[in-house]
Computed example of a mutant assay.
Amino acid sequence: MFHRIGIFAKNSDDSVSETLTATLAVLRSRDCDIVIDRNCAAVVDDSAIRTAPDIDVASQRDLIIAIGGDGTLLRAAKLSFPASTSVLGINLGHLGFLTDISPEQISQILGPIIDGNYTSEERCVLRAEIIRDGSVVGCDHGLNDVVIQKWNTARLIAFETYVDGHFVLSQRSDGMIVSTPTGSTAYSLSGGGPILHPQLRTLALVPICPHSLTNRPIVLADTA
């Protein structure tokens, strides 16, 4: 069962208010302890709402509910990753590959999930480091992908790819997408990458506009 609930919402969408109100009604009927991201609390007229900065909402809850599209869920997932908090999506976007529930299903589905009637999935998360002169100068995590790309130039970039210390290829291109199975339906798909089942333990290396006739996406084990 879930009791401490955090909510993120897409605050630029006119349909958020009605969906958020319906979500709050279900959670309050279960006597949940609810905290809403301060940035999205203004979309609903409810003086009883408790708000907090987004990082506190993500780190101190049993469940995060993301109301919006896949972008909203990705933001919630990134913030909740350090605490391994579960994330549930209510879809107000277009495709909704990641968001599980439509607004029309809230009253029927959300309550049983809060009561413990659900199936969870674990997803692969990437960790990327920028190393300069032997020191880590930048680090971040990605649920969808990590992208190496040119910046502020119209020319191709030339680089080499190594996996576990072994040379794989060199290429001239606009960059490279390193995609998880979750991200295989996002930028990677637009770049010609394969669609991977979310439970596969794999990664995809997808070149971005390579200047080559033979450079194609490569699928690797996620232990690489």
Rank of each mutant, 00 (worst) to 15 (best):
residue 84 S to Y: 14
residue 134 G to F: 01
residue 126 L to W: 03
residue 36 I to T: 09
residue 59 S to K: 11
residue 14 D to G: 08
residue 197 H to N: 14
residue 72 T to P: 07
residue 56 D to M: 10
residue 101 I to G: 00
residue 72 T to L: 05
residue 118 Y to L: 05
residue 33 D to N: 15
residue 204 A to N: 08
residue 105 Q to Y: 02
residue 163 V to G: 06
residue 28 R to A: 01
residue 213 L to W: 14
residue 159 F to K: 14
residue 176 M to S: 13
residue 112 P to T: 02
residue 13 D to S: 08
residue 217 P to C: 07
residue 132 R to I: 01
residue 1 M to D: 02
residue 58 A to K: 06
residue 51 T to I: 14
residue 31 D to Y: 10
residue 118 Y to I: 06
residue 153 T to N: 04
residue 182 T to Q: 06
residue 167 F to G: 12
residue 182 T to W: 05
residue 198 P to M: 10
residue 30 R to F: 03
residue 51 T to Q: 10
residue 9 A to L: 05
residue 64 I to F: 09
residue 196 L to D: 04
residue 86 S to G: 04
residue 34 I to G: 02
residue 38 R to P: 01
residue 187 Y to M: 10
residue 150 K to W: 03
residue 147 V to K: 14
residue 110 L to H: 06
residue 182 T to D: 04
residue 71 G to D: 00
residue 67 I to S: 00
residue 21 T to W: 01
residue 132 R to A: 01
residue 212 S to T: 09
residue 42 A to D: 10
residue 211 H to T: 09
residue 109 I to E: 09
residue 180 T to R: 03
residue 170 S to Q: 15
residue 104 E to Y: 08
residue 113 I to D: 00
residue 17 S to A: 14
residue 126 L to Q: 04
residue 72 T to D: 03
residue 58 A to P: 08
residue 53 P to Y: 04
residue 4 R to C: 04
residue 130 I to H: 07
residue 47 S to D: 12
residue 23 T to E: 03
residue 43 V to T: 02
residue 57 V to L: 10
residue 84 S to N: 15
residue 187 Y to E: 07
residue 14 D to A: 13
residue 49 I to G: 06
residue 46 D to M: 09
residue 97 F to M: 12
residue 151 W to I: 09
residue 39 N to C: 05
residue 181 P to W: 00
residue 121 E to W: 11
residue 183 G to P: 10
residue 52 A to W: 11
residue 149 Q to Y: 11
residue 19 T to C: 08
residue 7 I to Y: 00
residue 56 D to L: 12
residue 161 T to W: 13
residue 44 V to W: 00
residue 59 S to H: 08
residue 7 I to A: 00
residue 32 C to Q: 13
residue 40 C to I: 07
residue 34 I to R: 05
residue 143 L to H: 00
residue 133 D to Q: 15
residue 220 L to Y: 12
residue 54 D to F: 12
residue 142 G to D: 00
residue 24 L to T: 03
residue 84 S to W: 11
residue 46 D to H: 12
residue 131 I to M: 02
residue 87 V to T: 03
residue 115 D to I: 10
residue 94 H to A: 01
residue 204 A to R: 07
residue 12 S to F: 03
residue 11 N to W: 08
residue 206 V to L: 08
residue 160 E to W: 13
residue 198 P to R: 13
residue 28 R to Y: 03
residue 174 D to T: 06
residue 17 S to R: 03
residue 216 R to F: 07
residue 178 V to E: 10
residue 102 S to Y: 05
residue 1 M to V: 02
residue 132 R to G: 00
residue 109 I to Q: 13
residue 147 V to N: 07
residue 159 F to A: 10
residue 153 T to L: 09
residue 22 A to H: 06
residue 5 I to Q: 06
residue 132 R to E: 02
residue 162 Y to G: 03
residue 152 N to L: 14
residue 199 Q to A: 06
residue 21 T to D: 01
residue 161 T to D: 04
residue 78 K to R: 14
residue 173 S to G: 14
residue 69 G to L: 02
residue 159 F to H: 13
residue 174 D to M: 13
residue 35 V to M: 08
residue 35 V to E: 09
residue 86 S to I: 12
residue 104 E to T: 07
residue 216 R to W: 07
residue 60 Q to Y: 09
